[in-house]
């Protein structure tokens, strides 16, 4: 059994079927990417995996640790927007899962890890978009999850901040041995971050194609192999009538 198994037989909003017969699994320390156009149901699939959307037929199973720690879920989610509580400081937002009794040591460690040293007491209104998303990433890591689900987490920041945040997530995830499932519509991002890329078709097309990225890490964004794979992805997207 893999770390995360998703089996969605059907998911519909009203009469519109968005997901149909989709099976997906995530192994230990694996980086999987869902790539597809807007409206293909990739975010919905991620929300189902997170347990945020329960109105579907099918099943999701997450392998829990041996210690059977059920208090904090083994899955954490980074949303497209930072979604910080505006009335809480950076530290309080990061430790949100534990409320007022958050672990100060762990929070301070995370603040340093995401490069926000000195901003512990800052309120979200004083943060830039990239900084706020760093806090959101730290908040997701606070519960020490085994799986990180990311829903287009870098789509609202500029291109340079995006590259920095991508490297940050890769670093943090590798340090902790976390697997992640990322949803994106950015081909370069998918190739740079993913071990395996699932290409989704438009409508309820489902997973049309999957390919593994056989480029060792750390990767160079300019690597020739990535460019070759990009043309494969483009072909797959064309075959799936996405472009």
């Amino acid at each position: 059994m893999s770390l995360l198994d998703i089996d969605v037989r059907e998911k519909a909003f009203g009469k519109t079927i968005v997901l149909h017969d989709i099976k997906l699994s995530l192994d230990d320390s694996q980086a999987a990417v869902l790539l597809g156009p807007s409206g293909c149901g990739k975010s919905t699939l991620l929300r189902i995996a997170a347990g945020l959307d329960k109105q579907f037929s099918g099943s999701v199973s997450v392998k829990t640790g041996q210690d059977g720690n059920t208090k904090s879920p083994p899955v954490a989610f980074v949303f497209q927007e930072p979604r910080l509580m505006p009335w809480l400081t950076v530290s309080q937002n990061i430790g949100f899962a534990d409320g007022a009794k958050y672990d100060t040591g762990r929070v301070n460690g995370l603040i340093a890890d995401v490069g926000l040293t000195g901003h512990a007491a800052t309120l979200p209104k004083a943060l830039s978009g990239g900084m706020a998303q760093r806090v959101a990433i730290a908040r997701a890591l606070y519960t020490e999850p085994r799986i990180l689900l990311l829903d287009e987490p870098f789509s609202a920041v500029d291109a340079f901040t995006r590259m920095k945040l991508q490297d940050l997530v890769l670093k943090l995830v590798e340090q902790r041995g976390i697997s992640f499932l990322l949803v994106t519509h950015d081909i370069d991002e998918a190739l740079y971050l993913g071990d395996r890329i699932y290409v989704m078709g438009a409508g309820d097309g489902g997973i049309q194609h999957d390919l593994s990225v056989d480029v060792p890490r750390p990767r160079d964004r300019r690597a020739a192999r990535l460019a070759e794979l990009k043309s494969d992805v483009l072909t797959a997207l064309q075959a799936a009538h996405v472009i």
């Binding site: 997170a50 347990g51 509580m85 409320g99």
Partner: peptide, 27 residues
Amino acid sequence: RKLVEVGEMYRQPLPVLVWRILIPASL
């Protein structure tokens, strides 16, 4: 709703959601 969802992500029960999210947000 997006803020409430953050609480739901952590499986927080309703009283906790009310105290940590709904009350401060409606202040």
